[in-house]
C-alpha cells in the first residue's frame, strides 16, 4: 500500500494543517509517512500546497509528481494540479470556490461544498476538515477515530473548544461520500 496525496488551496485555508493531521494519523496507525510544504517555484501563484505520502514501506521520495489523490480547495489549485493526477486517481473539489470541472475523464471527481458545510456548522475555517472527511471516507486510508486523535494533538490548549466543530466537520465530510 502506498498513497500519494497533494492538498492545495489559498494560504489561510488550513491546507498545511490538513496534511499534517492526515500524516500524523497515518503515523499513529503504524504507517510510514512524509509531509512537505510547497517548495520551489510551486510557491508562486498564490496557492499553498503540501504533499503527503503514506506507505507500508520505507518512502523513497517525499516529492510527488503524480498523486493518487488531489484535494483542491480553490480554482487555481485545481487548474494547476489536476493534470498531474494519476489516471484512475481521485480529485476532491471544494465546489463552493470552483465553478468548473476538470477536463479529464480518467479520474474520479468528487465535488463537495466544503466551505458551505463549514459555514453551516458555524465556522468557515473547518472546511479543511470537511474535505479531509471526504478523503478518508472515500479511500479508507485512516480511521476516523485516529484522525480525531490527531486533531486533538494539533489543537493548542487554548483552542480545545474547537474540538467539537472539527469533529463534526470531519464526520459531515465522511457522510458526503456515503450519500
Amino acid at each position: 500500500m502506498k498513497m500519494e496525496i497533494i492538498m492545495a488551496g489559498f494560504g489561510g485555508q488550513g491546507i498545511m494543517l490538513m496534511g499534517e493531521i492526515l500524516a500524523h494519523s497515518a503515523m499513529l496507525e503504524g504507517r510510514e509517512v512524509s509531509w512537505i510544504p510547497s517548495y520551489g517555484p510551486e510557491m508562486r501563484g498564490g496557492t499553498a500546497n503540501c504533499m503527503v505520502v503514506i506507505s507500508d514501506k520505507r518512502i523513497p521520495s517525499p516529492i510527488i509528481s503524480s498523486p493518487d489523490v488531489l484535494v483542491a480547495m480553490n480554482k487555481p489549485s485545481m487548474e494547476k494540479f489536476t493534470p498531474m493526477v494519476k489516471s484512475g486517481g481521485i480529485v476532491i473539489l471544494n465546489k463552493a470556490l470552483i465553478d468548473e470541472r476538470p477536463a479529464r475523464d480518467n479520474i474520479k471527481v468528487i465535488e463537495v461544498d466544503a466551505t458551505g458545510i463549514a459555514d453551516e456548522l458555524g465556522n468557515m475555517r473547518v472546511a479543511n476538515m470537511v474535505a479531509l472527511g471526504v478523503l478518508i471516507g472515500e479511500t479508507g486510508i485512516v480511521k476516523p477515530e485516529t484522525v480525531i486523535k490527531s486533531i486533538d494533538y494539533f489543537l493548542p490548549a487554548h483552542r480545545k473548544n474547537m474540538m467539537e466543530i472539527n469533529e463534526k466537520a470531519l464526520k459531515r465530510g465522511i457522510a458526503e461520500v456515503q450519500k
Binding site: A23, M27, V33, S34, W35, I36, P62, I63
Partner: peptide, 10 residues
C-alpha cells in the same frame, strides 16, 4: 537542504 529542513517525518 530546504526540503529536508521543512519536511515532516516520524
Amino acid at each position: 537542504d530546504g526540503i529536508l529542513g521543512q519536511m515532516m517525518e516520524p
